[in-house]
């Protein structure tokens, strides 16, 4: 579960953002829609604790997480938040499997190969595990990044434009998988997008 109140952020005096309050309970989903320049990515980065808000509060799993030290923030993020980026990026020198296991390693957890294989099978890229990520198609790469976000069983899954570079059938596929998987681990799912195709997929919506 994740919630925010009175979030404000400014890159410069001319470029200020203030965001509506957000709440997304465990197993719930939330769609944040907005055109470019409305601060979608900024909001996502604030929720992902990658940016510090000027004012306002964020709490994850009913614990306030603002005003913490960078080390604590890094730990909380690794433990509680799975992020899926607009363009799937990976450590290009490592295999698909190692990229997924990387989230265990960087969060100082035991590497769970069994779980990685299970997720790969569910998400349909098990045969690609030994390959390099660059050998996969965009849709496959996006599914790998979903698996990576799920590896530590986070409390919150944040997805930034996860479908913007995918065709209709892949979009449908990815959104279904996201919803299924976050529900299966009892996480809150927040999708930030300008993709109008997703409007009908989510009942809870916030417009920026």
């Amino acid at each position: 579960m994740i919630s925010s109140t009175n979030l404000r952020f400014s890159y410069s005096p001319q470029k200020k953002f203030s965001f509506p309050d957000i709440q997304c309970k465990d197993k719930e989903t939330l769609l944040i829609l907005g055109q470019s320049g409305k601060g979608k990515t900024t909001l996502l980065h604030l929720l992902a604790l990658l940016l510090q808000p000027e004012t306002g509060q964020i709490s994850i799993a009913e614990r306030p997480v603002t005003n913490l030290s960078p080390e604590e923030v890094t730990k909380i993020r690794a433990k509680n938040i799975g992020i899926i980026y607009q363009k799937p990026h990976f450590v290009s020198s490592l295999s698909v499997l190692d990229n997924i296991l990387l989230s265990n390693y960087l969060a100082d957890r035991k590497e769970n190969i069994h779980k990685a294989r299970l997720l790969a099978e569910k998400l349909g890229f098990a045969e690609h595990l030994p390959k390099k990520t660059s050998q996969l198609s965009q849709g496959e790469q996006q599914r790998v990044s979903i698996a990576r976000a799920l590896m530590n069983e986070p409390n919150v899954i944040l997805a930034d434009e996860p479908t913007s570079s995918l065709d209709d059938s892949n979009t449908q596929n990815v959104i279904t998988l996201l919803k299924e998987q976050s529900a299966s681990i009892g996480a809150s799912l927040i999708v930030v997008t300008h993709d109008q195709r997703l409007k009908d997929e989510f009942s809870n919506q916030v417009h920026l």
């Binding site: 080390e71 992020i83 990026h89 989230s103 100082d108």
Partner: peptide, 15 residues
């Protein structure tokens, strides 16, 4: 070239 990779690993919990 790997700037993004580094940022990614940092966001995933690397120090």
């Amino acid at each position: 070239e790997r700037k993004y990779e580094m940022a990614l690993m940092l966001s995933m919990g690397a120090t």
